[in-house]
Design a protein around this nucleic acid. Structure first.
Lengths: 127, 127
DNA sequence: TAGACTATTGACAAATTGTACATACGGTGA
DNA sequence: TCACCGTATGTACAATTTGTCAATAGTCTA
């Protein structure tokens, strides 16, 4: 069950929802390592994500053909790193995601507008 | 796995995400039957949700103390109907949800702005 | 050479979501 | 009266997603 307290663990839940389009956008800037992407998610308010979750998302996107990956030849230092690169399909996915986000934004706007409108009405009533 | 095709089944996934705050708002308008709420979700772009999902959400909200419910005494026609009413706690939850939605909208705005900015930059480049 | 930091992965438990079906009341037409 | 339709709600289980913990591995430094 769980479903318990308000806002489950930090913003984790929401962060996960926006991770995928954000990764696509970051990769549209250019190829990058998983670890780098993990860190750059913070710029989009998606910091503190569990690394496993991010790596898993990248592998899933690869399965769908949105990205390709290969081991970094020039190992700078540390363990081998995987480099991800956006594919043409991933480019399409990013566009679709952008549309989806616009729609989502519309939904939220409508909901918040109704909320405020209703609350302002409530202020005038003397109950 | 699944995670397969783009946009899984209609807008179901997204609809579920916004169902809870929408139900809270609808109940802030006044007590209502589950079935009525189910239908009114459509006004917020959340139509076509599986009834089970909506009833389940209502029961969950009741477990958390956000709503109370009782069987409608005056059975108009048809089977017995349950009436849901928002509690003070539910009222608080709605306010918190509104804040959360504002934040979410901020995230989306930031993401879309970055996307557009990057795309416009790309147009100037001759690759 | 033990520990810290960078990187990635695997496996499994926990939670959420989708779906199919069960139940029940009242009205309608044959 | 019986079959059937539309309204209304609930249950149970399968499918999917998410959270978390631990394993591995290379490099650097004290």
């Amino acid at each position: 069950m769980y479903r318990g307290g308000w806002r489950w663990h930090g913003c984790s839940r929401r962060a996960v929802r926006f991770m995928e389009p954000t990764l696509l956008l970051l990769l549209h800037y250019g190829p990058a390592h998983g670890y780098t992407l993990l860190e750059r998610l913070e710029e989009f308010g998606l910091g503190g994500l569990n690394p496993s979750v991010v790596y898993r998302a990248l592998r899933d996107m690869e399965e769908r053909g949105w990205v390709t990956s290969f081991w970094d030849e020039e190992q700078a230092q540390g363990p081998p790193r995987r480099v991800y690169r956006l594919t043409a399909l991933g480019d399409e996915a990013l566009k679709l995601w952008a549309q989806d986000l616009e729609e989502t934004r519309g939904l939220i706007d409508h909901l918040l507008a109704s909320y405020r409108h209703h609350m302002e009405e409530g202020e005038d009533e003397h109950h």
